[in-house]
Each structure stands twice: as C-alpha cells, then as structure tokens.
Design a protein around this nucleic acid. Structure first.
Lengths: 345, 345
DNA sequence: ATTCCTAACAAAAACGTTTTTGCATGTCAA
DNA sequence: TTGACATGCAAAAACGTTTTTGTTAGGAAT
C-alpha cells in the first residue's frame, strides 16, 4: 500500500515550479537575483512537497563534513570519563541541544583519546572543554586547520599568533566572592583544596585566593590534590590542611568532587560542618546537592557555556569572526547548609 | 610557511599510482577484480599520501546521511533531562564510544522533543532508549522508514508486522534474584515501589514481583509513583507503603532515584536501614553508591547495552539482519549496606 | 587462424546540491 | 537607434566518491 516513494529533491521542486534547479536553489538560499514573488512561490511549492535538501550533497560542494566535535581535554595523569562530572553532562546536553536546534550534528568524543580524538571522524570544528596545558589534541587540531573553541582558556606557552576563541567564567572573581561569603558567615581561616594548576580555572582560582590572602594579610593555606579527580583526592587534600599546624575553619575546593572529599575528611575526624568547618566547592552537582550536609557551591552555568560554544564555533566555521569573543558567563553562589554557620544559608 | 595544502583525494592517489580512480576505489574497497599485488601497492601509496576518503561524497552516492541518532523516549507526563540519570549517561557514553570507534557519527537528541526528535537532522537509523508505550516518535520514525533499535522492548498494541530489533536485560529474572537476595538477608515482607508501567522494564519488574508473590503466597504490596521520576516520587511511594496497614521490612524500587526517595522516607520516620527496612533499587548510580547508607543495586550494564545497540543499528543500516536479536545483557546485584541486615552485604 | 573467454584496467555516469557563467529581454540614457 | 546596463532565469561545471559499462590484451579452445 504505502508506495515506497523517492525522496523529494531539488529537481522535483524545480519541475513542479516550472523553473530550473538553479532558480530553486537561489530562491531557497536567498542568493542570486530573483523577484520576491518568485522566491515565495517556489518556497511555497518546496514546503508543500516536503522538500528537504540532501545534506551530503550540500556538504560536498561546501567542502565541509557537517559535523562539530566536542571533547574534554584530559591530563594523562588524571584520567576520567565524561560521565564522571555533572558539569560536563550539563555542558554537553546544552551543546547538543543547541547544535540540534541549529540543524547541526555534534559528535561527542570520550576524554581518554588524547590527540587521537577526532582522528576517526572528520569534523568542521571542535569544542574542547577545559584544555589542559599543552594538550597535544589542540596542537593536532591546529595543524589540521580545524577551528577550535575552548571552554576555559588554552595556555600553550608561546601565543602562537593564531587568534583564540573561548568561553569562560571569571573564576578569579568567583573565588573572591565565595571567600567573602565564607567570611560573612564567620570564617576566620580559609584553606584551599585544588587540583594541579593545569587548567585555567584552577590557575584563576588559586590566583584569586592568593591575592585575597595578600589583601587580608594572611598566609595562603593550600593543598594540591594530585592523582585522579575524585573524592579520595579531596579527602587527602583536606587531611593535609586539617591535620596541619594551622587548621582552617573553612575550606574552598575548586571542584565539587574535592569538596565531597573534604566533607568525608571532616566526618572522619568528627569535625562538625558547618559549625567547626565550612565547606564550599566550585561547580554544582547532584552530589553536592545531596551531600550531608548539602554543599554550598559556585554555579558555573554550564548550559550557557555549552550553547555559547556551539554558537561561536558555528560562526567560525562559516568564516565569520564571532561577534563576542571571549564570551564571559556569569557565576553565582548557591548557599547551602555546609556554609550556614551563622543563621540560615 | 605552512603551505595550506589541499586535502588528498582519490585522484591524487590515482595519479601517484599511475592508475585510474576506479582502480583506486576498487583496490581500497576490495571490490572489482584486481590482482592482490596491485591492491597492496595502491593501498600503500594511499597510506603514504595520507589519503582519507571524503565522507560527504561517499554518503552522497550511498544515499545515506552517515549519522546515527540516539534519544531517550519520554512520557509526556514525566519529563526529564538526559543528564538526570546516570544510567543514560553511561549508556550514551558507551554508544558514543562505539560509534566513534567505528568511524560513525552519533548525534544525541534531548528527551523533551517527542516526535519532533530527529526532525532537524537527518539520520540513517535511530536508537531509542526505553520506549514508552505508543511513543509517537517511534511511529514517526517508522513512517520515515528509518531503522530503529530500541533498548527495552517497544510495545505498540498491534504488532505491526515490521520486525523488531532490541537490546534488553532480563528484568523479570533480575527482579526475582533481588527478591531472593532480600529474603536471604532476612526480609519477611517485601514491597515494591515502581513507576507507572509505561516501559517494558517496569512491566517486567512488576510481573516478576507479582509472580514471586504468587509463588510465595503473599499479597502484592505495590506503590506506583506517578509524576516526575525523582526522589520526591520515591518518597511518596514509600510513604504509601510504610504508613499503610501492612508495612514492609524491605522495599525494592524499580529505579535508583525512587530508592533514594525510599531512603529519605525511612529517615523521616526514623526507620533504621537496613535493620528495620532494607532498600534496594534497580540501576546503579553515583547517588546510590554515595547514599547513606549506600544502596544495594541491580546493575544493568548500560555500557554493554549501548555498544550492542550501535552494533545492531549499524547492521541494520548496512542492510544486514543482525546476527543476534534480541541481545540480552546480563544483570548483577551489587550488594551494599542498605540490605546488609544479617552480617556483611 | 579465428573465436571466445578472462583478467586488468579505464571511461563515463551517477549521486544532489551550489556556484559560475551565459543568454535573452527590457529599460534607460545619449 | 544604439549602446549600456540591469533583470530574470537557465545551462553547465564542480564537489569526490562509487558503480556501471566498456575496452584492450593475452591465452585457450576450436
């Protein structure tokens, strides 16, 4: 019954409209010189017939693949999966949504691939999340001439002349404001637990913390959690501070996973949170929200970051310089019980 | 300095090898009739030149888009995001990985799109996760003649004659074994908290539970948690059982989120877990692992499901009937503290 | 010696678009 | 009245493959 009907092509539209394929193409793309009336009538016929242009054919003449790539940069010392962090999930979801809405296909590559990412599938451009210092992936993409948008700034020693495009939060500012938040709630001595400074957000947070220490005339109290990025590392980092000669009464961790580890370290020592120790982390997550007690977090707006990255990359691929670059996405503090020492959060 | 060099095409290879493009194509694809020696030498030259076939051109002649789609089916009454469930994330990661390894591009569509999913981006085939009854998306894909692999079985009343392809766990068996696990650990009265039976896994779990009740001569004790799938619904469902005339001393929830809600309900009533109430949930997640106490879970192996789905869909697209269909993926019980009433989990 | 077959390759068509070039026709200015 | 120029459209080339259809040379069979 259901006649296996051919897909409607530009030729069918042309035939139906009594014009050439050239004219249809021009009418639909807005190029060429055609009277508005012709354009409209052709567009109408195309819509009636349910014409959908063949993407492969388009890509072929455009010399594009029609694919955007997204991956997260990873340091070889600290491997992790895309699903390990709520932040990535939210960013990816948003990016995926934005791409699909724009009729673009976005392919996600796992983190563990290093420079081999995007070697199997050809892409028109790439979004690289949180680039670590001198990631060979970036060099490889640069060499292939593939446009890149990073989420967080890239740092490869010599600024190689190529213009940079990125989305970022103001992590320095965010750090200052969470420190203020802690002080407001009664903190007297604030320690920092961070990952090694391989990403711009870590460097920014540490820089913010140090400048705050200088301004308030305190000695920085920093633990760098090496190894895998998880609760265990946070636990160890927190232990270093809590068991040290100058234990803090508040800790800010540059990642939610670390903050959860700090919470565990406090529990192991029967230190009451937030009464004896306030804890806050960067990046909100299910884990932070459901922790005991719930963790105050710096929200980074990964949804906006993801959408902005796709938009910026699309511009680049079309050969337009993006209107705004870099894009700065605002942060916000989500006050929860873990910092509610004086009254409600 | 870096000469912006053209991309190597099949013509370049042909020229370098002193043969026609036809011969190169045949040599590389294994088709046509060529002596092995010629094939090899051409392959070598192609590799030397770094030849990579243009995907768009290939797709154009093949009449394909080169894209696989994946989305999760959602009931309009219970909307959720892709990132809401660890299960999806793990499945998606695995599917993405499998696709990329196979040189395929997989595009992820959000859940909230309903039948509109895949209307913006053309795909060669689709993976639909946990299809809900009579999802219009499936009908729409069927109508467009797009091959479908489902994760979990589809149920659309009349079996419409079209052959079905799916990956699944044996949820009935899994349910029986977790019930056994609970009994072994001292449960006397086991209740079930489930979502409405719109997916095959829910129907299977409920069916398993009911047959177990029948076999053990008990009256089923079931709470159906409507509305959004989250801890709140689990809380309400658990309340219904715990505050009822026949309160259970163990609850199995068909989703980890519900199980977390059960935990909260127990805490709200000062019911000790696992001493007074054992709790287990289907699907492992970060939340389950980090809950207080950690939740015993039925692991579903989403990684294997995701990879199998991509493999099966690829077969279908190439026009081959998959070797195994359906694919059944084994489950396992992850014993944790929430069911450790008698001795260690 | 002719015919027939096969091996080894090449020429050309096809896929569905976009883009470039070309060709009428009409309008306006000189 | 003749060029110059704009307008409205079509023909044809191009994108990089795969696939279909030849073509040639050589060997075997008659």
């Amino acid at each position: 019954m259901a006649t296996a009907r051919r897909r409607i092509g530009i030729k069918d539209v042309a035939a139906a409209a009594g014009v050439s394929t050239t004219t249809v193409s021009h009418a639909l793309s807005g190029k060429g010189r055609l009277p508005e009336a012709t354009r409209e009538s052709i567009a109408e016929i195309a819509a009636e017939l349910g014409y959908r242009p063949n993407t492969s054919a388009r890509n072929l003449v455009a010399g594009k693949t029609g694919l955007l790539g997204i991956t997260v940069s990873a340091s070889p010392d600290a491997p992790f999966g895309l699903g390990d962090f709520d932040y990535f999930i939210q960013l990816l979801s948003a990016a995926t949504g934005a791409a699909v809405e724009g009729g673009q296909a976005l392919v996600v590559e796992g983190a563990a691939l290093g420079a081999n990412a995007f070697s199997r599938v050809d892409i028109d451009g790439a979004i690289v999340i949180d680039p670590v210092s001198d990631d060979p992936l970036l060099a490889s993409l640069d060499a292939r001439g593939i446009p890149i948008v990073t989420t967080g700034r890239r740092d490869d020693g010599s600024d190689s002349g190529t213009p940079r495009h990125w989305i970022d939060n103001d992590h320095r500012e965010a750090t200052l404001s969470i420190l203020d938040h802690l002080v407001e709630h009664g903190a007297r001595r604030i320690g920092l637990v961070s990952t090694p400074p391989v990403t711009s957000y870590t460097r920014d947070a540490v820089a913010g913390y140090r400048s705050w220490c200088e301004a308030t005339d305190q000695k920085p109290l920093v633990a760098v959690a090496g190894g895998p990025i998880n609760e265990g590392s946070g636990f160890i980092g927190a232990a270093e501070l809590l068991d040290g000669p100058d234990p803090p009464d508040a800790i800010y961790a540059t990642l939610d996973q670390l903050a959860l580890g700090v919470l565990l370290a406090a529990r192991a020592r029967s230190i009451a949170v937030p009464e004896e120790l306030m804890v806050a982390g960067c990046t909100d997550s299910h884990g932070s929200a459901w922790a005991a007690p719930p963790l105050t977090a710096v929200a980074l707006n990964p949804e906006r970051i993801g959408r902005a990255a796709v938009a910026m990359l699309s511009s680049l691929i079309e050969g337009r310089e993006p209107e705004v670059n870099p894009v700065m996405v605002p942060t916000a503090i989500l006050p929860r019980q873990s910092t509610a020492r004086n009254g409600p959060p």
